[in-house]
Design a protein around this nucleic acid. Sequence first.
RNA 1: GCCCCCAUCGUCUAGAGGCCUAGGACACCGGCUUUUCAAGCCGAGAACACGGGUUCGAAUCCCGUUGGGGGCGCCA
Length: 548
Amino acid sequence: MIVRTRFAPSPTGYLHIGGARTALFNYLLARRLGGRFILRIEDTDQARNIDRADEKLIEDMRWLGLNWDEGPGVGGPAGEYHQSRRLSVYRAHAQRLLDSGKAYYAFDTREELDAMRKAAESAKRRFRYPRAANFPGEADAQRARSEGRPVVVRFRMPDRDFVVNDLLCGEGGVRIAASEVDDFVILKNDGWPTYHFAVVVDDEDMLVTHVLRGQEHLMNTPNHLGLQESLGFRTPVYAHLPVILNMDGSKMSKREKDAAVRSAAKAAIAAATSSEEALRAAAGAAPEAFASWLRGDVQLDAATLDRAAAALGVQPPEIQIHDFRASGYVPSVLLNFIALLGWSPGEDREKMSMEEMCALFSLERVGRTNARFDRAKLLNFNTTALAALDTPTKRGLLRDYLSLHGDSPLATQPDAMLDRLIDMCPGIRVLRDIEIKCRALFAADDGLPIDPAARDKVLLRNERAGLRTLEELTERLAALPEWTAAAIDAQVRSFAEARGLKLGDVAQPVRVAVTGTTVSPPLFESLELLGRERSLARIRGTVRTLRA
RNA sequence: GCCCCCAUCGUCUAGAGGCCUAGGACACCGGCUUUUCAAGCCGAGAACACGGGUUCGAAUCCCGUUGGGGGCGCCA
């Protein structure tokens, strides 16, 4: 029997870390066992579907390299892989259950259901839907509809305990008592299937053999077993994966990003480096909404949050796969790291290529404890991996990074220039580091912005020692017979030695004068790249400004 | 509230009753290197949640406690 796995996300936006790991494990299992990996889009909630969200999700999957054998864009035997395009399939199966008395119509309103749930809660009972003694017929459904009552189809759950044979949870299966399950809705009032129903039908249609999914699905598995039994379907092998949490143990979500930006905003306002009004305007938020966000009552939407973060000059923590791409992580490294959140190949192995993971993966070695997402370790993985790549490969990654940052001055540079920048920046942790270090080299020479802290510390402190050094050095540099990193290096060193200065005492003033900051690629190479004219223009400009 | 899952350094984990004085990785701390930021090199500290069993012997098996996570929708 050929192994068939699937990743079945609900398209509510970009792919999350947890979703990516679920996808990865399904992918690895299929690859390891010579099976097929299917992508299916679970878009059965009309209210929640965001326009074209599946495209973002698919983009992230492709970027990660988690390519599917069947699914959107590649097709397959099931024909359609968006549940929204398979409605007739679900309806046919629902009708079958209706006809055989294994499902029935129900006409309760939300209010009635809420009231029943409240009553159960106050009586300290678990709510169970009160199944009618006699099921309503088609005529009753017609009447209910004409009276404007909601009409749903509920599944008549078999009245017995269920045992979920899970590869990861429990030993000898997880037993869930009959009292813990009830007659759940399979067809909503809008005629669309619920998740529980669509997932069972599709896993059967698509011949899925192994279901690896988040542990939050463990308790709904009896619903699926009941449906499979009543529909005469196979039951796939289940493995419910532990959850990935934030470092603080909370559930990983966009909230963390929101909180990070909020605390930066509060700090900036408290330190008077910014005002609430200025930030609000920069973020483009309504005054009341912004105030309520600052109090922590609500979250900001993604775009507003990004603008606020930019205005504050803070880098919010990456949450979604897309965030990591935008920071300049290597996709295979991200996958490698995520795989280790729950899986270990043993023998102290950690750093692995995709091929190695495919060869080594096994469910027996997947753990069962929740993992926290440690960005520091991921950063280390990325740093190490980047250091091992050759320049053309890094350039490819940098191009991808820049495709998301069209406003970067690096975005329009030719390959030869990018290669030069890459070689000037060893030891980078993420691709964004290249941009941070190099962007000043592409700024206009006139009116180069100087960081005040750098200016005070490096040029003005100690009675302008840095500035005086700079002035003395300028003419020596101007007189250099050739403008190469080696020549500049020799000149600066001999100058420093003659004055009894450390190299840094000379190099830092030049760096600040030329780049406006204390951080840049190696100075002499930077000066060579900039050229004599532009370098001297910047130094002289800075000197002029500070003298005035 | 009821039900389910889980429990080794700060974090991810190795560990299938003696190989454990508990191994690796990241982080942290100390040192070296260094024209900035990184990177690199060397070194140190750091864990079997608790309480009962079982056994000659328990991180490993059983029970309980505590703690963490999840579920109880016409969301997925």
